[in-house]
Design a protein around this nucleic acid. Structure first.
Length: 769
DNA sequence: TCGGTTCAGAGTATT
DNA sequence: TCTGAACCGA
């Protein structure tokens, strides 16, 4: 044993040095004695065991893909509790997704003989909701405050922009909502935003008006949940001390995905006596675009004076060919904490690489390959197709559909986002809170009850004038329109009265009928599905009440108990539900690389590996952007257990045009020994040979491209789809030809050098082939 | 108020 | 090419 555990408060340089060391011989020795005794620690490797049994102090666990991260996290919780180091009530465990949160609750419960009640396990938002439900008074919120999802938020912003008479062209609600969420996630209120120009000043005004509106209506958006809790902790010393004392152990999953506000939030809960156990992987940081700061890992080490960094590098998922590919690829990133995956699984199958002539052909090839795998015994559900962007799923779907193979696409509308569900929820929310204008506007005329756009405009004017909600202003309108409005108000009042004393299930059943929603969908041609969804909503509510007991815990000493309806509405906003029925069926899995994170499959196909698509063109300008794309590719590769296929296509239908593509630069970063090119001979493009280590000019004579590429014939022997060589930019593909004679120009995709327009009279372009 | 037409835009996404 | 949103006529 070469090293002893680091004493408390040891300097951070030392810890960094630790991080850079091969870890197995550098583990804290403290783990060893108890290890044999406790069954929890059986089957853990030395690094995992070290992490699980770490003494109570801040620690950073660098957990590589497939290294048993969740296992370490959950076993640690169980370990802390069984060894009596903490009671369940002293544990705070945070994740990003509900799925991960459920796991983090379920697995320790299974390991422990004692109930884990009192433990705070959940998503950042879920925990903030819990926190604010308890301290709603101090947070200046109504007890039954409602949560706006992204859709609702955008609608609310739109209303503000309209009310302020701003040009919706210059202030698109989507972007304004994005701006507001971004500022909140940086912890900034309107007064804190730095204003440089007129446009920014206006944006801040909108932000302020939006805040006022939310406060008036008693609603909060997602970012507000975080910010409001953070501020309350920051400003209320008693409260802060209470929670800091309570949570002796804070565990964070996917730490590399935290944004600035989440990091500060964590810091606020970590008191002098708490130990923060942060688990993450900088190589899998793929959410910078939504505010994630990988830098939080370094900040954490510094600001928490982290004494222990443990690297989990033993991979239990993939064979070494797959890992060699992953390791080699990611080594091209400069900004890394440094980590290398290893496995005992043996070399396994080589990574197969396929070059297709078109996106259509690529999809067809995939289908044939998948059929073969299935025939050889792979369940369909163990075959996944990954792509960079959602639009790519279409051609694959249609190929699968034509072949009659079951498949499942991830993403898309989730249960609680469906229109009919949102409508029903809007009625329910109005029962809870009549001032919720977002919900009011959603259903005031749905089903139609003679309240048109003009009426609503008048109503909004009246509401603005009296600074009240729409519902409170209904009396101000005269005539037939006013009568209709008051009838709607009476309907809501009747629903509210009727729901008193009913169970949640009965309330929803009543509302679905009384609102006219059920009748509306019964007469609709395609309303059957929607009716079924509404019935499913009733079931979901029922399940929520029985299973969750709506999340109350006596230990939380909430000031008053929330009604089941309000709790269910919060649940609906925080957990959008599944996006697909029959999730368990045996079907091929289609998803973006982003949504594949955290999953694993026997066979993985990564498709569309073309310059401009993967890496995506929008991220090529900056090094950070490109490195994130590379991490994304790393995530894609490390999803595979046994077989990995990488494919790209010479042409791809994009935005209605055929685009000529160059294979992704990532191929050049993969080790040749782990790859096997399976492209049929006659199908390889010239640059395929040319692009390798030998340099560009010595292109092997390739076969001619598909006949369809021969269109667009032009002078100079250059034509669309042809591979050409340029002295400065190297190999490229002609994408477009324009003009004629001395005006002739060609648009050429030079891959890593980007898309260029070149005048054929000037530029020296030599056809390659 | 509805339904058809026109137009812009098209990356990744959890809560 | 396809989608969703805005717009216009009946």
């Amino acid at each position: 044993m070469s090293r002893q555990p680091r004493p408390e408060g040891a300097g951070r340089c030392a810890s960094l040095e630790w991080a850079m060391h091969p870890s197995s011989d550098a583990l804290p020795a403290a783990a060893a004695p108890q290890a044999a005794a406790n069954p929890l620690l059986r089957n853990l490797n030395p690094e995992q065991r070290a992490a699980v049994t770490l003494a109570p102090r801040h620690a950073l666990i660098l957990a590589g893909a497939g290294s048993g991260k969740t296992r370490v996290l959950t076993t640690r919780i169980a370990w802390l509790i069984t060894t009596g180091q903490v009671s369940p009530g002293g544990v705070l465990a945070v994740t990003f997704t509900n799925k991960a949160a459920r796991e983090m609750l379920a697995r320790p419960s299974a390991m422990l003989p004692v109930p884990v009640r009192g433990m705070w396990v959940g998503t950042f938002h879920g925990l903030c909701n819990r926190f604010l439900r308890i301290h709603w008074k101090r947070a200046a919120l109504p007890q039954g405050f409602q949560i706006l999802d992204a859709q609702d938020q955008q609608a609310a912003v739109k209303r503000v922009v309209k009310a302020m008479n701003l040009d919706e062209e210059r202030y698109p609600p989507k972007q304004v909502a994005w701006f507001i969420a971004g500022e909140k996630e940086e912890g900034r209120r309107p007064k804190d935003v730095e204003v440089r120009d007129e446009h920014a000043r206006r944006l801040v005004e909108v932000y302020q008006a939006y805040e006022d509106q939310c406060q008036r209506e008693g609603v909060v958006d997602f970012a507000e949940l975080l910010l409001r809790s953070y501020e309350l902790m920051r400003d209320d010393a008693l409260l802060r001390e209470h929670y800091q004392r309570r949570f002796a152990h804070i565990l964070v999953d996917e730490f590399q995905d935290t944004n600035r506000l989440q990091y500060r939030w964590l810091k606020m809960f970590a008191g002098p006596g708490s130990a923060t156990f942060a688990v993450g992987d900088d190589d899998q940081s793929i959410y910078a675009f939504r505010g994630a700061q990988v830098g939080n890992m370094a900040d954490f080490e510094r600001e928490f004076a982290v004494g222990t960094v443990i690297k989990l590098e033993q991979n239990y998922r993939s064979t070494s060919n797959v890992l060699d590919a992953a390791n080699a690829l990611i080594s091209h990133n400069v900004r890394r904490l440094g980590k290398n995956l290893r496995t005992d699984a043996g070399a396994g199958q080589p990574v197969r690489v396929m070059e297709a002539t078109s996106d259509f052909a690529e999809a067809q090839w995939f289908v044939d390959e998948a059929k073969q795998l299935h025939r050889d015994g792979t369940p369909l559900a163990e075959i996944a197709v990954l792509y960079r962007s959602n639009a790519q799923s279409r051609v694959i779907e249609s190929a699968l559909f034509n072949a009659g193979i079951a498949y499942r696409v991830y993403g898309g509308l989730r249960f609680f986002e469906r229109a009919e569900i949102k409508h029903a929820l809007a009625y329910l929310r109005l029962i809870e809170n009549a001032d919720d204008d977002t919900s009011f506007l959603r259903v005031v005329n749905f089903p139609a009850r003679g309240i048109g756009a003009r009426t609503i405009e008048q109503l909004q004017d009246a509401a603005r004038a009296s600074a009240t909600s729409l519902h409170a202003s209904a009396d101000a309108l005269a005539g037939k329109a006013g009568a209709n409005l008051r009838a709607f108000g009476a309907l809501l009042a009747a629903m509210r009265a009727a729901s008193a004393g009913l169970t949640l299930r009965e309330i929803i059943e009543h509302v679905v009928e009384a609102s006219g929603l059920a009748d509306y969908y019964r007469t609709e041609k395609e309303g059957q599905d929607r009716l079924e969804n509404l019935a499913e909503l009733v079931n979901a509510a029922e399940a929520f009440v029985t299973q969750e007991g709506f999340g109350r815990d006596p230990a939380d000493d909430a000031e008053e108990v929330l009604s089941p309806l309000a709790a269910f509405l919060a649940h609906a906003a925080l957990e959008a539900g599944d996006n697909q029925a029959n999730a368990g069926a045996d079907a091929i899995q289609l998803m973006t690389v982003h949504s594949a994170k955290g999953l694993e499959f026997d066979c993985v196909f990564v498709t569309g590996l073309e310059e401009g698509l993967f890496p995506h063109e929008n991220s090529l300008e900056s090094r950070d952007g490109l490195e994130e794309e590379r991490r994304l590719m790393y995530v894609a590769i490390t999803r595979a257990r046994k077989r990995l296929y990488l494919s790209f296509s010479q042409t791809r239908m994009l935005h209605g045009h055929t685009r000529y593509a160059i294979r992704s630069r990532f191929f050049d970063e993969l080790p040749e020994h782990a790859l096997r090119w399976i492209t049929p001979k006659g199908q390889r493009s010239a640059y395929r040979e040319a692009w390798g280590r030998a340099g560009v000019a010595a292109a092997a004579a390739g076969p001619s491209p598909e006949p369809s590429f021969r269109r667009g014939e032009a002078a100079h022997g250059i034509r669309t789809g042809r591979n050409v060589f340029h002295d400065k930019f190297g190999e490229g593909v002609v994408v477009t030809l324009e003009g004629s004679g001395s005006d002739a120009r060609a648009q050429v995709n030079f891959g890593r050098h980007g898309m260029k327009w070149l005048a054929l009279a000037v530029a020296k372009l030599t056809p390659v082939e």
